[in-house]
Design a protein around this nucleic acid. Structure first.
Length: 707
DNA sequence: GACCTGCTGCGGGCTG
């Protein structure tokens, strides 16, 4: 039925493809996009044909003979653009529409060709758009002043992030140069909060969600191998090897160091037992060419089995072909991430997705089960709400001033005030930040006009200016003339040390401080490489679910014997506590000189509680993975101080300010935050690192029960 | 010590 709505060349494309029928999300998208000009979020599981769902109706609807680029496709990954380019180009051959890749690694000649005759479809990243807006505003006008559609891929990956606010602001700036408005189409996995998602398009009221809830059948198996030490146990590795040796698998060990450990050790086992040789690691520190080789191999091999040990680099978008099984080592920190990873296997229609979960400690096991149960209930945690993104505002102020090479202050303020990315920030606050930037030489005011100051000139010049997220400085790892990857500078980076990288073992021959290079030679034995990283955050609902699991009698068929036994042990240990109301009671365990408090709540609330403990001089160690506090305080003294926590909430602000002066690392999550006036820095930390509002709610409802 | 992402302009050297 929806086929008739499409233009003839598109119908021919579908006939040539021999598609028996269109997918539900495609049918919904075709009839909606063709019948009105709303924004849409197309939400359905991976490999359900979302790209075609957007482009079939768009290509039917848009008149590509008009001047200027008609459709802009924005992706969070270059690799995804390169992947989608082939699919979209194939589709466009039926209509004689030009498709151009525009990103940092794209062909320059193709870009120049586009500039000579702006038309068709452009595939790009938020950062490339930012760079164009900063350096060549006239070029942006030439290319994008007649846009009809903006398609945003992996829409969910922008939610609740600084990059999402940045993207939103860029959409506003594009709207500003378009005389008529364009529609935004977001392609997304199933997400937790569609109302929040709609706000990125800038017009939530005019944004509809088309959702295909149909999920794939997923087979899961949870295994438990208790691991005291830092490194993975031999038993686990042996089991993992047998589990994966004759299949095509992806393994997610949660961090780069462990990803290398798994790849190297499985490869060694495979060599000893004459298994296949296709063991790889894939993460941001592995050289790009090596990674592309791994992706190419996985995509193009039919007969050979492989095993890729990876981080979230392979969680998003890129279709790496047939994968039989996904292995997760220890818990994911979110349900959204779990869903994405499971979706990497069984992409073909008739296949089920298979996931094996290995837990190495009891809390990781409990959290894995909690995430899985919540997923089964259809729950996905909502993204973080960023209401006051002062840091992104500051970045955009510098960007706009630079692009205009002189702008009237009131004009700048009006534009920012109308920008939907900053709708919760007031005019007065914008003015205050501009004044601060003038005082600190980032901007200079000449009569009513603003230009860049000397500090501002320095900061907008390096290429790093175009992104809003932070990145660490790394040392390149080279063997002879070939680049293996990059590692951060740690005390492990010195002559004679052995490291794991790109699924191989290396001995460090020399460290060249000046050129930031590490020369290596192949070796046979070594240690896990040290990588730095930010702490991941877990939502409170997951921790509440763990408490519910501990006080339930439910039998889980997906657990192996060891996991079942561990769950039984945990349940027994907690059953002695007098918990009557799972929603409000939290256990306090009284030991000799210490107390243990189990909060069963999210990371940001735990951090805030830790802060309140500090303010009230309660000596403690927080462990977020078990959501618990070990406190050095007498029982009666703690109960006396407990009600004071709530009273000291108003003191938090002053305390954060003090913290920011002594240990500025607390603002490490924000790239542009350090350039803000103090009160806005405090606000960023309050909103993104802590969660005061929900901590207050938590403290008001919770009652402590003790053994 | 739990993740990941992106990037201009210019000039010098080389190739056809």
């Amino acid at each position: 039925m929806s086929l008739e709505l499409l233009s003839e060349p598109i119908r021919k494309y579908i006939r040539d493809k021999n598609w028996e029928s269109l997918r539900p999300i495609q049918i919904a998208a075709i009839s909606n996009i063709l019948s009105n000009d709303k924004n849409y979020i197309l939400a359905s599981r991976t490999a359900s044909g979302k790209t075609e769902a957007a482009f079939l109706p768009i290509l039917s609807k848009v008149d590509f003979t008009e001047p200027g680029v008609q459709v802009l496709y924005i992706s969070p990954r270059i690799a995804l653009i390169n992947d989608q380019f082939f699919r979209i180009e194939e589709l466009c051959k039926y209509l004689d529409i030009s498709v151009t890749k525009w990103h940092g690694e794209a062909n320059r000649t193709a870009k120049e060709k586009l500039l000579k005759a702006a038309s068709g479809i452009v595939l790009t990243t938020p950062e490339s758009l930012e760079a164009m807006l900063v350096n060549k505003p006239n070029r942006v006008r030439l290319l994008f002043n007649n846009l009809k559609f903006v398609v945003i891929d992996e829409f969910h990956s922008f939610l609740g992030t600084e990059r999402g606010i940045h993207l939103s602001s860029i959409l506003f700036r594009l709207q500003e140069i378009n005389s008529t408005s364009f529609s935004v189409i977001g392609l997304s996995a199933t997400i937790g909060d569609y109302e929040e998602a709609k706000t990125i398009t800038g017009n939530a009221a005019n944004t509809d969600v088309l959702q295909d809830r149909q999920a794939k059948e997923i087979v899961t198996r949870f295994k438990y191998f208790k691991n005291g030490k830092e490194e993975l146990s031999h038993d686990l590795l042996k089991d993992l090897f047998n589990q994966t040796k004759d299949k095509k698998v992806l393994i997610f060990p949660n961090n780069r160091g462990r990803s290398e450990e798994v790849a190297v050790k499985l490869k060694k086992l495979s060599e000893k037992l004459s298994g296949h040789n296709n063991y790889f690691s894939h993460h941001s520190s592995v050289d790009k060419e090596v990674r592309e080789h791994v992706e190419y191999f996985a995509k193009n091999t039919n007969t050979e089995n492989f095993c890729i040990s990876c981080t979230s680099t392979l969680e998003l978008g890129i279709d790496i072909g047939t994968v039989d099984e996904v292995i997760q080592i220890d818990t994911t920190n979110s349900i959204a991430s779990l869903v994405q990873r499971v979706g990497r296997s069984g992409r073909k229609d008739d296949q089920t997705s298979k996931m094996f979960l290995y837990a190495t400690n009891e809390w990781s096991l409990m959290q894995s089960i909690a995430c899985w149960k919540l997923y089964e209930e259809g729950y996905i945690e909502p993204p973080l709400m960023i209401r006051k993104p002062y840091d992104i505002l500051l970045h955009q102020i510098l960007s706009i001033v630079k692009s205009s090479s002189g702008i009237i202050q009131s004009e700048l303020i009006n534009s920012l005030n109308g920008n939907f990315a900053f709708k919760h920030i007031t005019k007065d606050e914008i003015l205050e930040i501009i004044r601060h930037l003038v005082e600190t030489d980032f901007l200079e005011k000449i009569k009513t006009e603003l230009i860049l100051g000397s500090e501002g000139e320095n900061i907008v010049r390096p290429p790093g200016f175009y992104s809003v997220f932070k990145s660490e400085e790394n040392f390149k790892v080279v063997f002879g003339k070939s680049l293996i990857g990059e590692i951060p500078y740690s005390n492990q980076v010195k002559e004679g040390e052995n490291i794991f990288l790109a699924a191989k073992i290396w001995k460090i021959k020399s460290v060249l401080q000046k050129s930031k290079k590490v020369e290596v030679l192949p070796a046979y034995d070594g240690k896990k490489t040290m990588f730095y990283g930010n702490r991941a955050e877990t939502h409170e609902r997951i921790r509440e679910k763990i408490l519910e699991l501990l006080f339930s009698n439910e039998d889980y068929k997906f657990l192996d014997e060891a996991a079942l036994e561990e769950v039984g042990k945990m349940r027994k240990a907690f059953s002695v506590l007098q918990i009557r109301n799972l929603g409000t009671d939290r256990p306090l365990i009284v030991k000799d000189k210490i107390l243990e408090l189990y909060t069963f709540t999210g990371t940001r609330i735990n951090r805030t509680l830790s802060m309140l403990f500090k303010i009230n001089e309660i000596k403690h160690i927080m462990d977020d993975s078990s959501s618990s506090f070990e406190m050095e305080i007498r029982h009666h003294e703690f109960l006396e101080k407990w009600p004071r926590l709530l009273q000291s909430v108003p003191k938090i602000e002053a305390h954060i300010e003090k913290l920011l002066c002594t240990q500025s690392a607390i603002l490490n999550f924000s790239k542009w935050g350090p350039f803000l006036p103090m009160k806005f820095r405090v606000s960023l930390v309050k909103e993104r690192y802590f969660d005061i509002e929900n901590t207050v709610k938590w403290l008001k409802k919770v009652s402590i029960v003790y053994s």
